[in-house]
């Protein structure tokens, strides 16, 4: 079973808009890709096309929040995080405003468009901001639960969404617990903390490793900030090695966050991600993920190596 996070974004935003008149949406001429255009069709008076001007869009969202609205702002993750970074910092995060930022087509998921359109740094730069919540769902089901919760979270939220169809790996009918690292598969030899698309790959790796008699625990860290430090320490406390996996630079993202949480633990941690490099164009998503070593096979060999 697969799901698509941006389709979820578009559909759930419309539902939220129906339930709550205070929800508004802003877009920077990418509404067809982020699928916020569905909201625009349903509630044109609450949909603000801001043109290709992300800085203005973010600060205007701050103004809407200051008049009691809950703006959902969406564009590609690179243009939703790095480009308007100071607007997010100053207009939104300092006053802790209720602005919900959707970084769509995140990571390498916009495989064709190349390095300018691939966000390898958005987790790092959103995570460093005080007052910011950073969410990175593993599949569409989790993205939907997060979307429904976002209006309730007081303050800014960054939601990182993948562009492509993803396998469903979370419990679709289960409740979503904000801020909790979620155990998806247990195992006693090593633990992998993964986020986004890498959760599915970690599960694949765990399956392959079990055939070799290695039990890999898989933990979905979809709330990257605030990090479930207690949960992370607990899941890392009784294993021989820790891995992290993310579709993001190895600098400043999930791996860094996990290391911060485990800085006083006596356990080796290996961070898997993009090795301090930009992306590139590719004909297919999986081909690109393989190029950057973001595969189940790579997880398998890393875990093997760690346990040697």
């Amino acid at each position: 079973m697969t799901s698509n996070q941006r389709k979820v974004y578009g559909d759930v935003l419309v539902q939220l808009g129906k339930e709550n008149q205070k929800i508004v949406a802003l877009e920077a001429d990418l509404g067809k890709s982020t699928m916020s255009n569905l909201f625009g069709a349903a509630y044109p008076e609450r949909y603000f096309q801001m043109g290709i001007a992300e800085a203005n869009m973010i600060s205007a969202a701050a103004g809407l929040a200051l008049t009691g609205y809950i703006p959902f702002v969406s564009t590609f993750a690179v243009f939703a995080s790095g480009r308007p970074y100071d607007q997010i910092r100053s207009s939104v995060c300092i006053p802790k405003l209720n602005v919900k930022i959707c970084g769509s087509s995140a990571g390498l998921s916009d495989f064709g468009d190349g390095k300018t359109h691939q966000s390898i740094d958005d987790i790092a730069i959103m995570r460093v901001l005080p007052n910011m919540t950073v969410l990175s769902p593993a599949d569409g089901a989790e993205a939907e639960k997060m979307m429904r919760l976002m209006p309730e979270i007081e303050g800014p939220v960054y939601l990182r969404l993948n562009r492509n169809d993803l396998p469903v790996v979370t419990d679709v009918d289960g409740a979503y617990e904000f801020g909790k690292a979620q155990l998806i598969r247990d195992g006693g030899d090593a633990v992998i903390f993964a986020t986004g698309v890498m959760v599915a790959r970690a599960l694949e790796a765990a399956e392959a490793l079990s055939a070799e008699g290695i039990a890999l625990r898989v933990v979905n860290v979809s709330t990257i900030k605030p990090l479930d430090r207690e949960g992370v320490r607990k899941y890392a406390s009784d294993v021989k090695a820790v891995m992290t996996a993310e579709e993001h630079s190895v600098i400043g993202g999930l791996g860094s966050a996990i290391c911060e949480a485990l800085s006083e633990a006596r356990v080796p941690v290996r961070i898997m991600g993009i090795q301090d490099a930009f992306g590139r164009s590719a004909a297919a998503y999986d081909e690109l993920m393989a190029k950057y070593g973001l595969t189940a096979d790579a997880i398998v060999s890393n875990v093997r190596d760690l346990l040697k």
Partner: peptide, 12 residues
Amino acid sequence: QGLSVSLGMALG
């Protein structure tokens, strides 16, 4: 940034 924030307020 202030004019953008003002614009958002005016829209609200």
